[in-house]
């Protein structure tokens, strides 16, 4: 084993940069979170408020609702991406005509800027301007208007997220599937296991670390969605797609309620970290499990 000093040396630049761009602002936000501070209030100064911002937060229905709908959105989107990604990855493990081409084209949405994704989908779904409402009405007689119907707007956002991120999930799963050892599967087939059994007792457990890691990274990003949703729905109709990222944006930017916005950000960060930490622990133990399983 080499000396830890070299190790720390290799790690140091990363830690320093993250400390400056990540930790320092974080500490400042923690500090501001304890103050009442709105430059356009009658007094523009920071007034110490103790935990009052947080006291307000736990009773703030707008905030709690926003949190709830962000969670619903993230769970729906990530779950669909996992299922779709898994199925598509399965098909990509087989050979079929045109596979390379399809796989390449499929990764395209990953490359589009979130703000452009939002703009694209807005053009697609804008009543009067987009083909989606027009043809849904023409072909199925469906009144599709994301400016009026909140469930349609939420659904459209989920679809947009699926469109944007399923390629990523698929590629990660594909990589995972390719790297699985062949022997257990061959053995299972010899033993006469059916497809479902193979899937349930072999593929899923062996892929568990990857599944969890993907959930981890996708949840983390889905929970802080701003650009796309902002471009597509502005949080409307009404407040039905006002996700927490946009909600905070409103509080901090137009309202310039820096204290309250900081407290809100921190609380959201707290919840995200706890959620991701639980996943992280699950991943770590899943890996340990796997290692032990291999040894055993």
């Amino acid at each position: 084993m080499q000396s830890p000093r070299t190790g720390w040396g290799l790690l140091a630049p990363t830690l320093i940069i993250l400390a400056i761009t990540g930790l320092l602002p974080f500490l400042y936000v923690v500090y501001v979170g304890f103050f009442d501070w709105n430059p356009f209030a009658a007094t523009k100064d920071m007034v110490f408020a103790g935990v009052n911002n947080y006291r307000r937060l736990v009773f703030d229905n707008d905030f709690l609702q926003s949190l709830g709908r962000t969670l619903v959105f993230a769970v729906c989107a990530v779950a669909s991406e996992l299922v779709l990604g898994f199925l598509l990855a399965q098909t990509l493990t087989k050979e079929f005509p045109g596979k390379t081409f399809f796989r390449t084209v499929f990764a395209l949405p990953l490359m589009v800027a979130p703000i452009a994704v939002g703009a694209t989908w807005r053009l697609l779904t804008m009543p009067g301007l987009g083909p989606l409402p027009y043809y849904l009405d023409k072909l199925f007689g469906l009144n599709y208007n994301i400016g009026i119907f909140s469930d349609q707007a939420t659904l459209t956002l989920v679809l947009m997220d699926i469109w944007h991120w399923t390629p990523f999930v698929t590629l990660v799963f594909l990589a995972g599937l390719i790297s699985l050892p062949k022997e257990p599967f061959e053995q299972a087939q010899v033993d006469g296991a059916n497809r479902w059994q193979i899937f349930r007792y072999l593929t899923v457990p062996m892929l568990m670390p990857i599944i969890l890691t993907t959930v981890f990274i996708r949840m983390m990003d889905a929970l802080r969605i701003v650009d796309e949703a902002w471009m597509l729905t502005n949080g409307g109709p009404g407040t039905s797609t006002l996700f927490i990222g946009i909600h905070i944006w409103r509080i901090v930017f137009p309202k310039t309620d820096y204290g309250y916005g900081s407290a809100m950000s921190l609380l959201v960060l707290y919840l995200t970290i706890v959620l991701c930490w639980l996943l992280f622990v699950a991943i770590t133990s899943a890996r340990q499990h796997e290692v032990e399983g291999m040894r055993g």
Binding site: I244, G245, I251, V252, S262, I273
Partner: peptide, 10 residues
């Protein structure tokens, strides 16, 4: 993980 809006001021 941080929601970016509030971190823009610092």
């Amino acid at each position: 993980m941080a929601p970016p809006a509030a971190f823009l001021l610092p």
